[in-house]
């Protein structure tokens, strides 16, 4: 019974997250300005991280957790440096 519940839940959760990623990609492609694209990229990182968490529950291993943590950290650093680039036009001052 619980295997069936988990199977359906994870199916819906992963589909919702893929849909969320599509929304981010739409905003990233559409723009209109650089800050919109960076905001969408940040949200895309978060969605990818949550998708990996869902994978972890589906497969029942904690190995995806580390991947999710790495994506979260990379997303943070990438967005901060891109925002800094927008502000000053250069990353390293």
């Amino acid at each position: 019974m619980s295997a069936l519940i988990l199977w359906w839940t994870l199916w819906i959760v992963q589909a919702a997250l893929v849909l969320a990623m599509c929304c981010c990609v739409y905003r990233m492609a559409r723009g209109p300005r650089a800050q919109d694209r960076i905001l969408a990229l940040d949200a895309l990182y978060v969605c990818a991280m949550l998708e990996l968490l869902a994978f972890g529950v589906r497969t029942g291993t904690t190995i995806y957790f580390e991947a999710a943590l790495v994506i979260g950290m990379l997303g943070f650093v990438a967005t901060v440096s891109l925002a800094k680039f927008l502000m000053r036009g250069e990353v390293i001052e």
Partner: peptide, 23 residues
């Protein structure tokens, strides 16, 4: 399974609504 599923669905749903707002 039921409690965890409810929380997973809440999280994914809020994420979807948020990115929907982005569009």
């Amino acid at each position: 399974a039921i409690l965890g599923s409810a929380l997973l669905l809440l999280g994914a749903g809020l994420t979807l609504i948020g990115t929907f707002g982005l569009v």
